[in-house]
């Protein structure tokens, strides 16, 4: 394969991986605390819409990002209210979030911007080339010439690994997810820990959504999260609930997605739907290989 093509594929892979990574890292925190949040998809979509709407209105992508993160936190809090405080079924709450987000963003988009047929666009977030972007082959371009949000995303991974492995709060989070009763005997407030994890999860998902509109597509399309929330759920399992594992799984998925774009562009005479399905087949295959999800926190999904 030509070097240029491979560089392009890797750059695209990173770009595709960032929203998955954000959502996956958020889900990682939620699951470590014992809560399964299948509302990632809806939270991404809400973040994407909020970021787009505010950036479009103010002309500031930073304001769009801030609005998205704030909204994500609020949604995480709302999820926690139902699933943790009120003890509602987590799957039901997650599904409600997804359905509500799809409806809400659709209605708001049409009522604010009308059905124009032409996509509304915003200023793309600028990329910032870090030292080495030009000199290091392939990875320099893929990793060191990206938007600020991408750098934040990548930097979060070692920080989260450190958080889980070395901090008191990280240990408390793991205890709550494994054995809430034992955690309570340590004086840990289980509900507060889970609520914090869910607020963080909401913020992470919204960041993923904001990346989609601000950094990647520069527009908003109804349902533009297109299953990324569910792929992120899968990535957390495939990545064995470790930040580095989630990174590898997200990059792998990103790469397969980039590859399918490339295949489509080659016009091989195969229906394009075949290529569209590739990343999902890859996810399914990886999930199948990980059958028996043995390292799931013991209290995951239980109220």
């Amino acid at each position: 394969m030509e070097l240029e093509l491979f560089t392009a594929l890797c750059t695209a892979a990173v770009a595709m991986a960032v929203p998955l990574l954000f959502a996956g890292l958020g889900e990682l925190l939620a699951e470590k605390s014992g809560v399964i949040n299948i509302g990632l998809e809806g939270m991404i979509l809400l973040g994407a819409f909020a970021a787009f709407a505010v950036a479009h209105a103010t002309g500031s992508n930073a304001a769009g990002l801030a609005a998205a993160l704030a909204l994500g936190g609020v949604w995480g809090l709302g999820f926690a209210y139902f699933a943790v405080v009120r003890g509602a079924n987590q799957i039901v709450v997650g599904t409600a979030v997804n359905l509500f987000a799809t409806g809400l963003t659709g209605v708001l988009y049409r009522s604010i911007y009308g059905v124009t047929g032409t996509a509304m666009t915003i200023e793309p977030s600028p990329t910032i080339a870090l030292p080495g972007a030009r000199s290091i082959p392939i990875l320099g371009q893929a990793l060191l010439n990206q938007t600020p949000l991408t750098y934040v995303c990548l930097a979060t991974i070692p920080l989260m690994a450190l958080f889980l492995a070395r901090t008191r709060a990280g240990l408390e989070l793991k205890m709550v997810g494994e054995n809430p009763n034992a955690a309570a005997t340590h004086g840990i407030n289980v509900a507060r820990t889970r609520t914090s994890a869910l607020v963080a999860c909401g913020i992470f998902c919204a960041a993923g959504g904001a990346y989609l509109t601000l950094d990647y597509t520069h527009t908003f399309v109804e349902g533009m999260s297109s299953g990324r929330g569910f792929i992120a759920l899968a990535i957390v399992i495939v990545g064995r609930r470790r930040p580095a594992g989630v990174l590898v799984a997200a990059l792998l998925f990103g790469f397969v997605t980039a590859l399918q774009f490339h295949f489509q562009a080659l016009a091989l005479g195969i229906p394009f739907q075949f290529f569209l399905v590739l990343p999902y087949v890859a996810t399914l295959a990886l999930l199948a290989l990980n059958a028996g999800d043995t390292n799931a926190p013991a209290a995951l999904g239980k109220n």
């Binding site: 008191r168 205890m175 494994e178 034992a182």
Partner: peptide, 17 residues
């Protein structure tokens, strides 16, 4: 009912104390 977390190591279980 022991207030220990089975999936964590002995050290991790003792750390908070």
């Amino acid at each position: 009912e022991f207030a220990l977390v089975e999936a964590l190591t002995v050290t991790e279980n003792l750390a908070l104390a």
